[in-house]
Simulated assay, not measured.
Amino acid sequence: MSRELYTRAVAGFDAVLRAMPGDRWAAPTPCAGWDVRALVDHVVREDLWAAELLAGRTIADVGDRLDGDVLGADPVAAWGAASTAAVDAAAAANDDDLVALSAGPTEVDEYLRQLAADHAVHAWDLATATGTNLRIEADLLDAVTAWFAPVRRTYQDLGLVGPRAPLGEPAEAQARLLAMFGRSEALAAVQRFGDAFDAKDVPAIMANMTTDCLFESTSPPDGVSHRGADAVRAAWHGFFETAGDHRFTTESRIVAGDEVVVTWRYDWTGGHVRGVDLFRVRDGLVAEKRAYVKG
């Protein structure tokens, strides 16, 4: 079971990486301090180590061979070679064999569950960094959650994951898992939406909204409600066509479960206003955006 989970998690990461635009290697990721290249370097290094350790070698045997940059001039090729070697080594190992990890001898079954979790979550990190709403396969999601929930506190105490992210109840399964790893799916969705909005990219905006989305504008006195993807898309086109020279600046984002409060300043030639957006997120997409303005 753990071998299948790991293989599928590797396939999921592979699909996201190979679909990534070539200009995103320096993009920030949900992993603090890591851009896309650093994240991919981490996962490739992890698989290079897995191939060695699953073959029965020790940390001392490997020595410093895997230190430094492991991606080289062709990061995708480096990933392909490392992941293939690791999956092959996993297929050849027995579940009750012991792997010589820094934490001590660990059964292959447990090690593969650790690897599956890391690959699944980092696939989501990579997708988020490239503006995509990745949905982890349901049974992989459930298996990783079942493995990680009892050990999450230990991982946090060791500094391997951050504090649990804010989460509302009831929460969706993927949001619960990501929160355990210190990530907020709601915040990531709003950030992707904001990036698309700043680029005035209406197709990208709509790709980050649900089909039954609601956008409530700031038009006085009570705002104008646009419901459903077609109406909201038309509203965005209308806004960008008439707004002229303008700039939104985000001042803060506050996460409350599946809701995110964003305070902002809107500048145009000759003036500005400040306001608040109330976002509600569902399945990693913006379902509601309600805007309010001071004035």
Rank of each mutant, 00 (worst) to 15 (best):
R176C: 06
A116V: 00
A32M: 04
L66P: 02
L39E: 03
H237R: 12
G228V: 06
G295K: 10
M1E: 15
D222W: 14
P21K: 05
L177Q: 03
A55G: 15
D139P: 01
T218F: 10
G168E: 03
V62T: 12
D258C: 02
N94M: 11
E216I: 14
C31E: 07
S184E: 00
T130S: 10
A116R: 01
A235Y: 14
G22P: 03
A90T: 07
P30M: 03
D212L: 01
D139Y: 06
I136W: 03
A82I: 05
G159K: 03
F148T: 02
I136G: 01
G271N: 06
R37C: 00
A207S: 11
F197W: 13
A173P: 15
D35Q: 07
A143F: 02
S219E: 15
A120D: 02
D212V: 09
T145E: 10
P150K: 07
E169V: 09
A235F: 14
D222V: 15
T211W: 08
D245T: 15
V190C: 11
G275C: 05
G275M: 03
G223V: 08
L112H: 08
S252M: 09
G270L: 04
E241K: 13
E216F: 06
M180T: 08
V262H: 10
R183N: 00
R113G: 09
T130H: 05
A116E: 07
S83N: 07
T242A: 15
D201F: 07
P28H: 06
A171Y: 09
A127M: 01
V40H: 08
F181D: 00
D277A: 09
T250S: 10
V261G: 12
E46P: 04
V151L: 13
G63Q: 05
A179P: 00
T132M: 10
L98M: 12
E46A: 15
L115W: 00
V36H: 10
A120Y: 00
P21M: 02
T263M: 08
A173T: 13
A186E: 00
A186K: 03
A19Q: 13
A235I: 08
P30V: 00
G22V: 06
E137M: 04
T7N: 14
S102L: 11
R45T: 12
A89D: 09
R227C: 08
A91H: 12
L101V: 06
A117R: 10
A146G: 10
A60R: 11
S83G: 07
A123Q: 08
L71F: 07
R65V: 09
R247Q: 14
D198P: 04
A73M: 05
W79C: 00
L48W: 08
Y155M: 15
A207E: 15
V224Q: 15
R227Q: 14
A146N: 10
P75R: 08
S217A: 12
E288S: 12
L71I: 09
T269A: 13
R176I: 08
G131C: 02
A38N: 09
L214R: 14
V87M: 06
L140Q: 12
T269H: 13
S217N: 10
L115F: 02
A19R: 14
P150E: 06
D97A: 12
Y6H: 12
D47E: 12
A92F: 01
F193M: 04
D23Y: 01
G271P: 01
G284V: 04
D118W: 00
D139R: 05
G56E: 01
D64K: 11
L54I: 05
R265T: 15
D201R: 03
L112Q: 09
T29K: 06
R37N: 03
D74W: 01
T249G: 07
D69A: 10
A138K: 13
